[in-house]
Nucleic acid binder design. Structure first.
Length: 165
DNA sequence: TCAACCTGGTAGG
DNA sequence: CCTACCAGGTTGA
């Protein structure tokens, strides 16, 4: 496992890579913890350094509300089969679009697993790039967000999604 | 087995 | 608008 910090206009994100790809992305925790990530070094496999570079670009674009031109490979193997289904469905939601938890449940063939979908979204290891913020509650409500609801609002606003009425 | 969830729908103020 | 309640799939303890 390799860990690196990524500086963005929204703070310092932390990334974790396995030999199969990006496996986790953490929101900035605290302004004083700028040393959390180990800077990439020559000791890193060439492939992983390339993933990090792609992730930097993708994160900057996603934070600006745009579809990343390129994404790193994701290692979602830490999740259960159900969670992986949900997470993979997230990738297909374009910026500016949004689904409800119920619609996402139906999309993966489990129309009644609405609450479980919420749980899987909450367990999303790669927020922002795996756009769980584009899943809203029914009736135009925001729903929850483990990274903090202000993040969800901010990300949606940058994509031009209008909330409520 | 059980409680906790980023839910959704219905029923009643 | 609000609160209450329950059916419900999945997960982790």
């Amino acid at each position: 496992m390799w860990t690196a910090a990524i500086q963005t206009s929204d703070g310092v994100f932390t990334t974790h890579f396995s030999e199969d790809g990006l496996c986790a992305l953490d929101f900035p925790v605290d302004a004083r913890i700028d040393t959390i990530g180990v800077p990439p070094s020559d000791a890193w496999p060439r492939e992983v350094r390339a993933w990090l570079a792609v992730t930097c670009q993708a994160l900057a674009q996603a934070l600006a509300g745009r579809q990343p031109a390129q994404l790193p490979p994701f290692d979602l193997s830490a999740g259960t089969a159900f969670q992986q289904q949900v997470w993979q469905a997230l990738v297909r939601i374009a910026p500016g679009r949004h689904l409800t938890y119920g619609q996402l449940a139906a999309a993966i063939g489990r129309p009644k697993a609405v609450r479980a979908v919420g749980g899987a979204c909450g367990a999303n290891p790669i927020p922002v790039l795996l756009p769980c913020h584009r899943v809203l509650a029914a009736g135009g409500n925001l729903g929850g967000f483990s990274g903090g609801l202000d993040w969800k609002r901010r990300l949606l606003a940058r994509e031009g999604v209008l909330l409520n009425h």
